[in-house]
Nucleic acid binder design. Sequence first.
DNA 1: ATACGATCTTGAATCGTTCAAGAAAAGGGC
DNA 2: GCCCTTTTCTTGAACGATTCAAGATCGTAT
Lengths: 140, 140
Amino acid sequence: MEARTAIRDAGLRVTRQRVAVLEAVARRPHGSAAVVLGDVAGVLPGVSHQAIYDCLAHLAEAGLLRRFIVDGGPMLYETRIRDNHHHFVCRSCNTVVDVDCAIGAAPCLDATLADGFVIDEAEVTYRGFCADCVRTPATP
Amino acid sequence: MEARTAIRDAGLRVTRQRVAVLEAVARRPHGSAAVVLGDVAGVLPGVSHQAIYDCLAHLAEAGLLRRFIVDGGPMLYETRIRDNHHHFVCRSCNTVVDVDCAIGAAPCLDATLADGFVIDEAEVTYRGFCADCVRTPATP
DNA sequence: ATACGATCTTGAATCGTTCAAGAAAAGGGC
DNA sequence: GCCCTTTTCTTGAACGATTCAAGATCGTAT
């Protein structure tokens, strides 16, 4: 869907910054705020980092973006949403790769939990080594 | 196991700070560095926060502690380790609760991933509302 | 076109964590 | 038990990512 349309349909005001941020995240999945800022600055010179944070927060709240975090790193953003996919993180190069859920469409929610608890989401992070780093072991 | 023994067996020097930190984490599962500091300060007045961070890092590296992160919060620590359990986080009160893995002992590793990738760990975070917050909805 | 409120810019502040240098103390050999 | 070497701790400053605050600017309903 086009960014402007998606933003308006979500009930948000359409600003240049929001459009640029949403497009930037779509262009660079799993990017941090800093990456998005770098990308947006190419289109809108002089954008403030604060605008980036605001836009990301609003877009995430509106459900147009998903935010997640890996280890102690900065927050990462992606537009692939509502498809219950997970993430694989390489221990060596820190690359993040999408992983389709092995179990099905709305899975991973069958945890054995105490009575009265309501689970509505399961976030899975796989760790290991990506194909490249398996071949060429780490050189930190 | 006793803390001193565990630390020595892991090949680490046994210091008062390390013993106190390990015991503090055992006492307060899912505590942050700040919580651990508060707890340890009761036993060793004047401990530095740096000592806490060092101890936590060393103990984690030695496999006596597990560290994980929830959302944008600080790092959390626990002594329950190597049993492949997961975490439930309440969206309202942020309480963290252990969840035994529904699938078995070494589960959750059957993701459909590209060839050449090696997965060695799966970390699952469940989100929803705990029993208390289901009854008494959020009041932020 | 106007007015209102939302959003952006600017700049400073905060939190959690890490870096750096010297002082203290753990553990092996005597 | 005592000394020596190395690790670990204390102190205090620095850092990155994010948030807070005030005023200027822009989007949108009228």
